[in-house]
Design a protein around this nucleic acid. Structure first.
Lengths: 228, 228
DNA sequence: AATATTTTTTAGGCATATCTAAAATCTATT
DNA sequence: AATAGATTTTAGATATGCCTAAAAAATATT
């Protein structure tokens, strides 16, 4: 049974890998788990001993099938608890991360399954991230960054790629949330900021930096998939 | 902030104290937390340094006010989560202990309060044990009105449900106080008044009205039933 | 290709929490 | 009051997980 710490490292490696890095570096892991590179090296040796990662000195790491399984079970729990916190305990989407970081380590597969059922088998967490199923499969959001969408296009918001509370509150303040219908009125040439309409209200302007971190879907297909 | 382990020790000491031991012994703690006496001694030193217990070598331990506060917050969380597991996730009352042992360490006072509200402020956990409120107060589970006890039963007085000076003086005059051992000799059919012995002195008679306002716990039977 | 810079690893510590074995202390009995 | 037995504490290890500082290796720059 992996320790909390081991689980955190596996999750971090999974996240980084998910972000597109094939061989995850020691430093990037250190940044992700908020520790020092030396501590990461220590842990990598242990995880390699336990066959949860493939690791060769100076060459970065990859999850093994078993390591990936563990990582996904943590991600599954994290995201399910986030749904619980928001839907049942009325937390806002920018408040749930720290608590879910603790809850994700609660061990009982049966508990996870019952929670899943209690929440009516949600497919996405409050930030639009997909929740792995029991077997580790995850529905691909197939979303694209709002910053890549052309003027005139109508899209639906499906998620965020930046999860900080500050950013989430920024979105709240601008009336932007999961499922929001967004129309791009204009892409300002000078700084690539966007003039957009959210749910057909008065147009607002958001920076390119903000747009980069907003994930959207071009069609309206998502509406049926999304169960709130 | 106490560690998980410190919290477990404080909870164990609280439990043992609750069971009637004034100065809790090292061995009894070792049995409760399932570890060795030497490990307990180590931890007792640490807890004493942190002023969570009063500890003198070879003399047993007592919780300080702060230690009790911590212990009760753990007990509160444990029992609230047990209610959640049984009422929301359909667990049976004999299945919830291990999972609640993990959940009780989740830290967020706000989460605890929201959970409490979500569960509609339960007073007892699925085993009938009282749930401490935010301030650490707990309703005594075992307490029932003396007027509901059958003839022949031996009980111990635990409280009153009527706080007037007149009533309290009445109790004083009859030698009835917290901790008094009361035996019901006879329930008089005509007016439901009770013939009782207090601390094995000569039998006295009290009215049904008085009996109604005296809270007692059944001294033997209930204790064993409680830990099913 | 040689050197400078960055990244990663090693070496050596520290704190937590546990253990066994032995010593110290308390308690109960004769 | 002396001693046998039980309890508790100390001493000395072990494992986890973190740290800093220095060495080693990889990468970038000239």
């Amino acid at each position: 049974m992996p320790t909390h710490s081991e689980e955190n490292y596996l999750k971090a490696i999974w996240k980084l890998h998910e972000a597109g890095i094939a061989n995850v570096s020691t430093n990037s892991i250190a940044a992700e788990v908020k520790t020092r590179a030396a501590s990461v090296t220590d842990m990598l040796k242990k995880l390699a001993d336990k066959k949860l990662i493939q690791y060769q000195k100076y060459q970065g790491v990859k999850l093994t099938a078993e390591g990936r399984r563990v990582a996904l079970s943590i991600v599954r729990k994290h995201r399910l608890w986030e749904v619980f916190l928001v839907e049942k305990l009325d937390y806002r989407w920018d408040e749930v991360h720290e608590i879910a970081e603790q809850l994700e380590h609660i061990f009982s597969e049966n508990l996870t399954d019952r929670l899943d059922k209690f929440l009516d088998f949600p497919k996405f967490d409050p930030h639009g991230d997909p929740i792995p199923d029991k077997t580790g499969k995850l529905t691909d959001a197939a979303s694209v960054s709002l910053s890549l969408v052309k003027a005139g296009q109508a899209v639906v918001m499906t998620g965020v790629s930046e999860h900080s509370a500050i950013f989430l509150r920024y979105l709240d303040e601008h009336g932007i949330g999961l499922g929001s219908a967004i129309t791009i009125e204009q892409v300002i040439e000078f700084d690539q900021s966007l003039k957009i309409k959210v749910n057909n209200k008065a147009a607002i302007t958001i920076s390119q930096n903000a747009a980069k971190n907003i994930l959207v879907k071009l069609s309206k297909v998502l509406q049926s998939e999304k169960k709130k």
